[in-house]
Nucleic acid binder design. Structure first.
Length: 559
RNA sequence: UGACCCAUGGUGUAAUGGUAGCACUCCGGUUUUUGGUACCGUCAGUCAAGGUUCGAGUCCUUGUGGGUCAACCA
């Protein structure tokens, strides 16, 4: 159907070509390779959806591989969080693997390279090594230690491994070409000494392999057919291939690295460093703050896995720099929640309505459908009584014809209830309306089938019975930045664009059915937006996060 | 003063060398007991100049613009 007609992205085209050229489909294998040094964000979701999506499309296994070669930055906490996020997004990996599982194999291969004269131990300072690297436009120069004997290199490398040297004193380098046009090929470092405890291998090792030496070999060990990474690794590809070729056995599959453009999002930042800054400086309240573009933040905000997957699909992938419009992400969550979120009524900025001709002590439990988009969703009862809250901005003493809401002398429909007419209002000393006195039409009850209940009135308002209202706290989130591309200004710091009003907390009243809501339950507060129960909720008060407001056609006209 | 990558409406993404399409946004309208949803519609694009070709968004050349590459990070 539509899925089958969908055009292929460039990665899929590469795979299709490989298949045509004879790669058996059963050899297809992918991997998602995060470093466990932080939390996943919506950019990672692009990679996750791409790799696991390919797995689904081709019936191929996808590994979750932690690229854990730098014990200084990595922690078990991140491993757990990443697994949780990938699972939450709805994907199943074939195996969970760790680059650290391959440390011994990597070491053995390094010894082999030394024996073949393709690697050497350098004992210069990192500054000296950097100097000799040259620049993109000037060639590098050979290290004075480049031509040590195999025996000496071997002995030194074993000593490195045995902890005989201090951090920074020795490294193992691949002997490639200091004049190479690609700087990554100028005798890249394969191993450095790091006397740190690794979250998995403990103190077994004090030398750790670098990314380039590890990544391609890990792909090869796992027989990953297509190793997909982001564009900034393009220039690493020569090295990736060189390393793989040193150990490549022609009876096995030779993995292939391909690169796609990072997915950026408008009105936010995505780099780990900047996100960390937001957390550490208290601009947000943690990595899972609902304003963060992290998976955990989006989850807490009320996003669904499906919405994020749909967003990834809709945004697509390519090789050019891009900034996806956050409006697309918002469209995806509204689209999903419109079909699935139960409708309820809550009043965020209340003003009291008194139905003067309604019996004093009476309460009626009225029927309300849970979701007009889903017949299976059924209905619930909501209490109606003499005193109600409505939204303050739904009343004006006088207004023009465009204002469909409550105004003196005019009627509106109370959703799922009666038609009321505003007769008068009471104001306080400041002239602020504190009570609106209305009359209701007793025959107009929704669903009663009477002629009066069928009457068409232009406006329909949401409301909550004062006596039955559940007091809730509501966190209204807005975009964290006021600038579409906060990163995109060379002369300005991204923090200059922070939106000071990205969070507003209000006390609100909700219908009593919300008493049974539990953490992460999502609702549509009718006419307002989608909201989700925050983990900060207590037995005495529930906290709701606004995921996204509903489209507001009136707000535009009213300007 | 190098190498490599990229360039399609405001945004994102398509188009065996053969009618530039789709989605989001914006704007307008229809329906509506949510000014929501749904539906319909409008505006809007191949970076430039040459070349190859019956025919170029696509191939070639040059230019322009953007990006990447010099961590004992990944």
């Amino acid at each position: 159907m539509t899925e089958e007609k969908r055009s292929l992205n460039f990665i899929e085209q590469i795979i299709e070509e490989d298949l045509v050229e004879g790669l058996p489909q059963s050899s297809l294998r992918f991997r998602f390779p995060p470093e466990p040094n932080g939390y996943l964000h919506i950019g990672h979701a692009a990679s996750i959806c791409l790799n696991f999506g390919l797995g689904l499309r081709y019936g191929a296994p996808v590994n979750l591989r932690f690229d854990d070669t730098n014990p200084a930055k990595e922690e078990q906490e991140y491993v757990d969080a990443i697994m949780n996020d990938v699972k939450w997004l709805g994907f199943q990996w074939d195996k969970v693997l760790f680059s650290s599982d391959y440390f011994q194999q990597l070491f053995d291969w390094a010894v082999q390279l030394i024996k073949e004269g393709k690697a050497y131990v350098d004992q210069q300072s990192s500054d000296d090594i950097a100097l000799q690297k040259g620049s993109p436009t000037t060639a590098g120069t050979d290290s004075p230690f480049r031509n040590r004997s195999v025996e000496e290199n071997l002995s030194l490398f074993y000593k490195m491994k045995d902890g005989a040297f201090e951090e920074g004193s020795h490294v193992l380098r691949a002997k490639i070409d200091m004049q190479h046009v690609n700087m990554h090929m100028r005798d890249p470092i394969m191993y450095r000494i790091l006397k740190k405890t690794h979250h998995r291998t403990g103190d077994d090792w004090c030398i750790y392999p670098m990314y380039d030496w590890t990544h391609g070999e890990s792909d090869y060990i796992e027989q990953v057919s297509h190793s997909i990474c982001t564009l900034e690794f393009k220039s690493h590809r020569d090295l990736y291939d060189w390393y793989v070729d040193q150990v490549y056995d022609k009876s096995l599959l030779r993995p292939k690295q391909r690169e796609f453009a990072r997915r950026n999002l408008s009105y936010t930042v995505m780099s780990k460093r900047k996100l960390l800054q937001l957390v550490e400086e208290g601009i947000v309240h943690g990595w899972d703050d609902p304003r963060m573009p992290t998976i955990s933040g989006l989850r807490r905000r009320g996003y669904t896995p499906k919405a994020i997957r749909n967003f990834s699909e809709a945004a697509g992938i390519s090789k050019r720099d891009n900034v996806a419009d956050v409006a697309l992400l918002e469209h995806c969550i509204k689209d999903d929640l419109n079909q699935t979120a139960p409708r309820v009524m809550a009043v965020l900025n209340p003003v009291k309505v008194i139905i003067t001709n309604y019996p004093e002590e009476s309460t009626e439990w009225l029927d309300a459908e849970n979701n007009p988009e889903d017949e299976q969703a059924g209905s619930r009862k909501i209490p109606f009584s003499k005193e109600l809250y409505i939204e303050r901005e739904d009343f004006r003493e006088v207004a023009n014809k465009k204002f469909f809401r409550l105004k003196l002398g005019k009627e509106v429909r109370l959703k799922n209830a009666y038609i009321i007419k505003a007769e008068s209002c009471v104001k306080d000393a400041q002239g602020e309306v504190v009570e609106i006195h209305c009359t209701y039409d007793p025959l107009s009850r929704s669903g009663s089938g009477t002629e009066e209940s069928m009457r068409k009135v232009k406006g329909t308002l949401h409301w909550v019975s004062v006596a039955h209202a559940e007091k809730i706290a509501v966190r209204l989130y807005d975009r964290l930045f006021r600038e579409e591309d906060p990163d995109g200004h060379k002369d300005k710091d991204f923090k200059e664009f922070i939106n000071p009003d990205s969070l507003t907390v209000v006390e609100a009243y909700a219908e009593p059915s919300l008493q049974t809501a539990t953490v992460l339950d999502r609702f549509q507060f009718q006419r307002l937006g989608y909201f989700c129960v925050d983990p900060d909720s207590t037995d005495t008060q529930k906290v709701f996060n606004r995921t996204v407001p509903l489209r507001d056609g009136w707000a535009k006209k009213d300007r």
